[in-house]
Amino acid sequence: MPDYLKMGVVLMVVGMVATAILSVTESATQKPIAAAKRQEMFDMLKSVLPEGFDNKPDLDAVILADKRLNRQGKPVTFYRARKGETNLGAAFLVTAPDGYAGDIEIMMSVTPNGTINLVQIVTQAETPGLGDKIVKTNWLKAFPGKSQDGTKWRVKKDGGDFDQFSGATITPRAVVAAVKRGLDFFAERKETIFKPFKPEDKP
């Protein structure tokens, strides 16, 4: 066999064996990965949503899109928590596009009367020791109980109700603004967000 052919054949065989092994691994790990992700989502929702719901919020969801939730207007899933027929709240992801280091993804849950139940940061890459104080301190504790009215949705430096950090104003400003936009959207579309599934709604 000429050399160039041998090289080609060897590379092909190596590639094929590697592909075969990887496809076996992929199919073996696919289900556990999906299960782990679902569990993670459920745990996340459980920690954010008001206590005492008896439905499965990770399955009871509506998908809406708006430029206020993220700059691209990508669809956002609203997970609903209910107890029997009563709505307890909804949790959804808002994205602050104007952090110091890329997008900040925020999971917020709101009760039906428009009060914030909890705010959590899902992903952020803010400067360690400065901007990341939004997660390293209890700064996020300022949000629960706040609603559209009666709160000045700005950082103190801008005449609002929320603390900034010395040396890091951009991050808190971005988060406060994003949560406010999420809250505005929620108030406007509350009916749609809590609209229960009807069998005839299914495609």
Partner: peptide, 11 residues
């Protein structure tokens, strides 16, 4: 392989 297995079993 390590990436997938870690994702599945030590999430």
């Amino acid at each position: 392989i390590i990436d997938l297995s870690m994702n599945a079993y030590v999430h």
